[in-house]
Structures are given as structure tokens and as C-alpha cells.
Simulated assay, not measured.
Amino acid sequence: MPVVLIEIRRECTAAEETALMDAVHAAIVSALKIPAGDRIVRLQAHPPHRFACPPGKAQPDLFTLISIDLFSGRSLEAKRTLYATIAAKLGELGISADHILVRLREIPRENWGVRGLPASEIDLGFKVEV
């Protein structure tokens, strides 16, 4: 049940925004083995003057920050796969890996309220420890 926020420094068409959101979600489904329908993905476009990025980027307007809140418990290998898959999928959209920063925030399941209960007390329908 990851919750994703993608932040970019440019205006895009609706189709470009959808492609970006779809690419990140597909990477999460593939790497973390969550159900495809488990999707909470947001995209926020900032004017470049309101979103400073690291210096030295060849195309600073393509800098992309991806924050993912997720249950704790994924292996380092699953995280490596996630980072590589996100970079590959965004590369298909013209965003190079050196313009992508992914930040994971792992939250214990008891700190997520799902269906009125702590997520640690319900069957999620997928395995977290991948």
C-alpha cells in the first residue's frame, strides 16, 4: 500500500503526467510485488523557481523527486530493484537516472490505519517482506 508523491519542475500535458505516474506505479508493482490495483500516486508540478534542484544537472527541468511512503520490511534487494526499475521506466520517458531522486519512508504497519484498523491487524492481500 505505498503512497507516492512525484514532484517535477515543469508543466506537462495530461498524457505526459499520466505516463509518468503509470511508470512509477508499474515499477513499484514489479519491484515490491504489490497488487496492480493498490494505487495511490500523486503528481505535483512546481514552477522551477519554487523547486531548487542539485546543481550541475544538464536538464534541470527534468529533475524528478519521488517520495514513497511504504510499510517497513522490504529487503535491500527489493529496494535496489525498485530504484533500478524506476530509473529504467523514467528513462523511457526521457528522464536520465542522474535526474531522479527516490526517497523511501518506511512506516511500521501499526502506524497505518486501514479500514478502521491498524494495518498490522488485517490481511493486506500481499507479502510485505520481499
Results as ranks from 00 to 15, higher is better:
Ala119Leu: 05
Leu101Arg: 05
Ala78Ser: 14
Arg109Ser: 13
Arg74Gln: 07
Leu104Ile: 02
Ile66Met: 06
Met21Arg: 03
Lys89Cys: 11
Arg74Glu: 12
Ser72Trp: 04
Glu106Thr: 10
Arg42Val: 08
Arg39Phe: 04
Glu129Arg: 00
Asp38His: 02
Lys33Ile: 08
Arg39Cys: 14
Met21Ile: 02
Pro55Leu: 10
Val102Lys: 06
Pro2Ala: 00
Ala87Phe: 08
Ser30Gln: 10
Lys57Leu: 14
Ala58Phe: 09
Ser120Leu: 14
Leu70Trp: 07
Ala119His: 08
Gly73Asn: 01
Glu16Phe: 10
Val24Cys: 05
Leu62Trp: 15
Ala23Leu: 07
Glu17Asn: 05
Glu92Tyr: 06
Cys53Leu: 06
Lys89Gly: 08
Ser120His: 09
Pro54Ala: 07
Cys12Asn: 02
Ala84Gly: 11
Cys53Trp: 02
Lys57Met: 13
Ile100Ser: 05
Met21Trp: 10
Phe71Ser: 10
Leu93Pro: 13
Lys57Asn: 06
Val102Arg: 11
Phe126Asn: 00
Asp38Asn: 02
Lys33Met: 06
Asp61Ser: 12
Leu65Ser: 01
Glu110Ala: 03
Ile40Arg: 08
Leu101Tyr: 15
Glu110Trp: 12
Gly56Glu: 03
Thr64Gln: 06
Ile28Glu: 13
Gly113Tyr: 12
Asp38Thr: 05
Leu101Thr: 09
Asp98Val: 02
Glu7Ser: 04
Pro48Lys: 00
Ala36Gly: 08
Glu17Ser: 13
Gly37Cys: 06
Leu32Gly: 08
Ala119Trp: 15
Ile100Gln: 07
Arg109Thr: 09
Phe126Asp: 05
His49Ser: 08
Leu82Val: 03
Met1Phe: 13
Ile28Arg: 01
Glu7Tyr: 09
Ser96Lys: 04
Cys12Tyr: 15
Gly37Glu: 08
Ile34Leu: 01
Ser120Asn: 09
Leu62Asp: 14
Phe71Tyr: 09
Trp112Cys: 07
Ala87His: 07
Ser120Pro: 15
Ala88Arg: 01
His99Val: 02
Val29Met: 04
Ala36Leu: 12
Leu93Ser: 10
Pro54Asn: 04
Pro48Ile: 02
Pro108Ala: 01
Val128Lys: 01
Ala87Cys: 07
